[in-house]
């Protein structure tokens, strides 16, 4: 596809800036957890499920706390405060910012999407994108019915992050399964259609501030690079082609604010901005 064979005059940094920044963000978050066991410098302890940074800042996954409450267990205040902080951050900044800037599975599924493009695989069967919402409801129901954090037995997101920090063996099979599924069965199948964590953060980010916009959409030459590379291509059209809206903001909750469209666009149509920036050129 054109996205990978760009004959742009722009520099590598211009063409990969947001990708590099995202990978740095993901790596630094991981390193904050690993500097302790690796170098004895403790920055963050725990993992994405719940952590303590510099001995003072508790952070807890709000979806996990929600499941814990569904089982009927009331966690200690440190977990509740941690969940409130995380909740406030993603409500304000952007729900699925978690997916593209923090989540380690994103690296796996991005690699799978890249592989799929490289192999030119167009076939497959994609589940409905609403499946993730049903899964989200299902895992809360499962927690309430079984009285345990049932989803955490399988959750690839916590499985991978915990595994990277504490060591993993069997969990790798699940991650490999997601990679194979995304390459051969469903394009962007896991993150875009199935992951209930992504669905949860998507629901959080409906009114969040950080947004990608297409202010220079008049310059669009319909090369389709952005659609090719976007993990949630359906979010681009309203902003880029002014379908159902006049402003150039991508406001759909599915947008992960990864900025990949900004990277690949030779016409520099897109930019990172806030949700009140409705200017277009």
């Amino acid at each position: 596809m054109a996205a990978t064979a760009s004959t742009s005059s722009r520099s590598l940094w211009q063409r990969q800036r947001w990708l590099i920044l995202r990978r740095c963000s993901q790596a630094l978050i991981l390193l904050a957890f690993l500097s302790g066991p690796w170098f004895g410098v403790w920055i963050a302890k725990g993992n994405l499920s719940s952590s303590l940074t510099l001995g003072v800042l508790p952070l807890t996954d709000p979806l996990l706390v929600l499941q814990t409450l569904a089982t009927g267990h009331l966690p200690y205040s440190s977990a509740l405060i941690g969940a409130a902080i995380v909740l406030a951050f993603y409500l304000l900044i952007g729900g699925r910012v978690f997916c593209s800037w923090v989540c380690p599975v994103n690296v796996v599924t991005d690699a799978a999407a890249w592989t799929r493009r490289r192999l030119g695989i167009k076939t497959g069967r994609v589940p409905d994108a609403n499946t993730r919402l049903w899964l989200l409801a299902g895992l809360l129901l499962a927690a309430a019915l079984t009285g345990s954090l049932a989803w955490e037995w399988l959750n690839p997101v916590s499985l991978l992050h915990r595994g990277l920090i504490f060591g993993m063996g069997g969990g790798l099979m699940v991650i490999a399964g997601i990679f194979i599924y995304d390459v051969f069965v469903a394009s962007r199948g896991w993150c875009g259609h199935l992951c209930p964590m992504g669905a949860f953060y998507g629901l959080l980010g409906r009114k969040a501030l950080l947004r990608v916009a297409a202010p220079a959409r008049k310059a669009c030459d319909d090369c389709m690079d952005c659609f090719t590379v976007c993990p949630e291509p359906q979010v681009i059209r309203p902003a880029l082609k002014a379908v159902g809206q006049t402003h150039p903001l991508i406001l759909a909750a599915d947008c992960t604010t990864c900025g990949r469209c900004i990277d690949v666009c030779d016409k520099q149509v897109f930019k990172m901005t806030h949700r009140f920036d409705q200017r277009s050129e």
């Binding site: 302790g36 302890k45 725990g46 993992n47 499920s49 719940s50 952590s51 303590l52 807890t60 996954d61 996990l64 706390v65 814990t68 089982t71 009927g72 267990h73 966690p75 977990a79 927690a143 009285g147 345990s148 954090l149 955490e152 037995w153 399988l154 916590s158 499985l159 915990r162 595994g163 920090i165 504490f166 060591g167 993993m168 063996g169 069997g170 969990g171 099979m173 699940v174």
Partner: peptide
């Protein structure tokens, strides 16, 4: 129901006694 599998207990164990289970271990994951 209560354990979120964060591993903070593992980190604060001075003798490396505690471990987190992996998928496939006989102990519930994490």
């Amino acid at each position: 129901a209560a354990c979120v599998r964060c591993g903070l207990c593992v980190r604060d164990c001075p003798y490396d006694t505690l471990k987190l289970s992996d998928l496939g271990d006989p102990v519930p994951t994490g």
